[in-house]
Design a binder for these strands. Structure first.
Lengths: 272, 272
DNA sequence: CAGGAAGAGTGGTCTAGACCTCATGATGTG
DNA sequence: CACATCATGAGGTCTAGACCACTCTTCCTG
């Protein structure tokens, strides 16, 4: 897991990987070939399996592509436009906009039932609740309702609302590792339309979002975006038949808990 | 690449992989441990590196999880709820609904400019154009505008509109491998609202979609979903700093084309 | 009984080769 | 000049070990 991220020479394959990563970012362009596996073997004085381990990592990350008989090449950057776990601020800056926020509410409160369920806590457990109007280049973009379990970051709101909730989490070693988002379209409420300064149209995009890190749910949020100013881009993978494990056998007593936070289940289904 | 999918004994690591995949689907439950690497070594009479190659594949697919010092375990099924390249019909059935379709238009026409651009063709090239009202359990769900290059499937519309466009593509060995989708929320037009039988609300979710297979764009579609009946679930990966290749150096003449269809570029960005 | 040490078993990294298939360009040959 | 052949070099698979790092259990000691 790489404890401090410091020394890259810990493992030989990491050294090779680092060399190749640097090559890709500083020397090569898309479509260029990297040095052959055997030449890397000599350059680093390692065995070919070790070189392949380094290359394999970059291939599964989508940075490189192998072509038998021809070589290994820099892959076109899909990375650029994949949906990722980012904050409103990071995303806005990436698109060349200046992000802003106006705090509408900020308090530590007992978790309402639906929040508790989403965060895998008990109803009534203390959670930080922040409501913000997000802007890009000064124009209102979305209204964001966020909840964070208070025990993870007790002092989150002590000095006012942090610029970035993610940054605050990361500062406490709570690194977001994955998340999920459910998107719907709906008519905005009069209050929302007013806050978002929408006039011609009234359609908004609503998202329900959860962020996970380590074993726990870190953040639950509901956001309402201006329909006319916001779009979401989603890459789709192949729908290959997926390996699905056998169902848990009637949960006999021997249960090994493992995986405390079972993903999914909340969204999309649950009509009613 | 596995040509026919027939012989699984071609490569030893594929045999091990197949054994483990079968184990996962038929014997093990989430959280169970698979046999240790060394015991698989004996069972199959292969070296440990070969066993690891098989396990690695399943780990990167998300089927298994390694834990140093403890073992390798069946991972919880994310697969279940990832956004994938599916058709309306498959998706509806997966949610327990009966899909239906009413063809509003079907013709082979010269590609309008925006369609040509999306499909990476010349404007005016012949494309099949199909407009359908999609229903689930009889209730209108969406209006779907689809374009497919005519040269890929010349006889697509000869016997009426196929039940499933994807199935028709697959039948011609044009397997969709990946796609992209841009989602926005907007007010439906009066015509759309009427066709979708929407009364209380008028927000719709619009998606612009492209499907790719092999080297070519196979399908371009614009769909308008009822906002009150449709939602999209998106898993989010970690936003790790991505390796970005050096920019193409002013495209000197030596250009190796490669990668004919450059992904993205159309959606989301392009403000201007 | 509590705490620590040792051992066993797991995955993680690594070697120094081997032979295979595939793509490509040079070399002949008709 | 066009086409087939072959050599070269790339990645793909595989071996039979080695030692390391980590986890868990068991057993011994205080």
């Amino acid at each position: 897991m790489v404890r401090d991220g410091a020394r890259s020479g810990e493992h030989k394959y990491l050294a090779v990987r680092a060399f190749l990563a640097d090559l890709v970012t500083s020397e090569l362009a898309v479509g260029d070939a990297i040095p052959s596996e055997r030449s890397l073997t000599e350059k680093f004085g390692v065995s070919r399996m070790t070189v392949r381990q380094a290359i394999d990592a970059l291939v599964t990350e989508g940075v490189l592509e192998r072509a038998q008989g021809r070589g290994t090449f820099v892959a076109p950057p899909r990375a650029d436009f994949e949906m990722r776990l980012t904050t409103f601020g990071e995303e806005a800056r990436r698109r060349g906009l200046t992000p802003g926020a106006q705090v509408l509410e900020a308090a530590t409160v007992p978790a309402p039932p639906h929040v508790a369920e989403a965060l895998d806590r008990e109803a009534g457990d203390p959670v930080h609740h922040v409501v913000r109007l997000r802007t890009a280049d000064g124009a209102p973009m979305s209204i964001e309702d966020s909840w964070i379990p208070a025990d993870l970051v007790p002092d989150l709101l002590d000095d006012g609302v942090p610029e970035s909730l993610y940054a605050a989490l990361r500062a406490r070693d709570l690194h977001p590792t994955w998340g999920e988002e459910t998107i719907t379209a709906a008519d905005g409420t009069p209050d929302e339309l007013r806050r978002l300064e929408m006039r011609g149209t009234q359609a908004v995009m609503r998202t329900v979002h959860r962020t996970f890190g380590g074993d726990a749910a870190l953040l639950y949020s509901r956001t309402c975006y201006r329909g006319d100013r916001y779009s979401v881009f989603v890459p789709l993978r192949e729908a290959r038949p997926t390996l699905v494990p056998r169902h848990r056998p009637a949960d006999d007593g021997t249960g090994k808990p493992e995986h405390p936070v079972q993903p999914g289940r909340i969204p999309e289904g649950s009509p009613r």
